[in-house]
Amino acid sequence: MAEVAENIQNIIKPENLVYQKSPVLTDKVMHYCPGCSHGVVHKIIAEVIDEMGIQEDTIGVSPVGCSVFAYNYIDIDWHEAAHGRAPAVATGVKRVFPNKFVFSYQGDGDLAAIGTAETMHAVNRGENIVMVFINNAIYGMTGGQMAPTTMVGQVTATTPYGRDVDLNGYPLKITELIAQLPGAAYVTRQSVQTAAAVKKTKKAIRKAFEIQANKKGTAFVEVVATCNSGWKISPVDSNEWMEEHMFPFYPLGDLKDGEKEDPEALKMNV
């Protein structure tokens, strides 16, 4: 045992460091439940900002939902928005500061329910912003009510017998709708439940910020995520539930990869 401890001390040296907490994250302990996907996505955004060297030039717009306090954790400038209005606020911020990197960070209740209009119109205008969309199929903050994204049959506080399409409608694939809009440059759906998935999501978020730098249109990154408290299962079981039930309906991958439509091509002939 003593020998093992000695070996470890030989490895734990600055020159052997391969991974540490991003310097763009603050020292505040996150208020999220143990195992919540929000923390993983915050970390990825912080790492991308650090690697691109844009900490001084990035402005986040935080939503209403569990991630309302995102501004406590990622050490950049932030603007808080009213529920669902983050894309509208981000539009204003980006137009006032066109040389800054501006992104919204929103849950599915925020982006795909109360904020559907702001979401669709911001993308349809082709605003040069990044939108990060955390789809955990439920309203986490308010105690686990049904969201538009809740799966058919999924039990929530407001669907105690499971989501019933006749009563509650179909789950909303808002990312598929967004991919149809001419203002969208890059639309992708990712996840963060494994190390490989985390690396892919990081690439996607980096690409989204690069698209913003090149003024190609709106870059939209959905992350299919878990809310283990709302789902009332453990974090590990939540990842399995997500893979089994959400991935077939919300398939991962790029939905659009290009740039917004050329307005000249759409002009009337007069």
Binding site: N16, L17, L25, Y32, A195
Partner: peptide
């Protein structure tokens, strides 16, 4: 390999390799 640190939501893990 850093897998543990990558999936940690609270960035609690520092990894060394030699």
């Amino acid at each position: 390999c850093s897998n543990c640190a990558l999936v940690c939501p609270d960035s609690c893990i520092t990894v060394y390799k030699a």
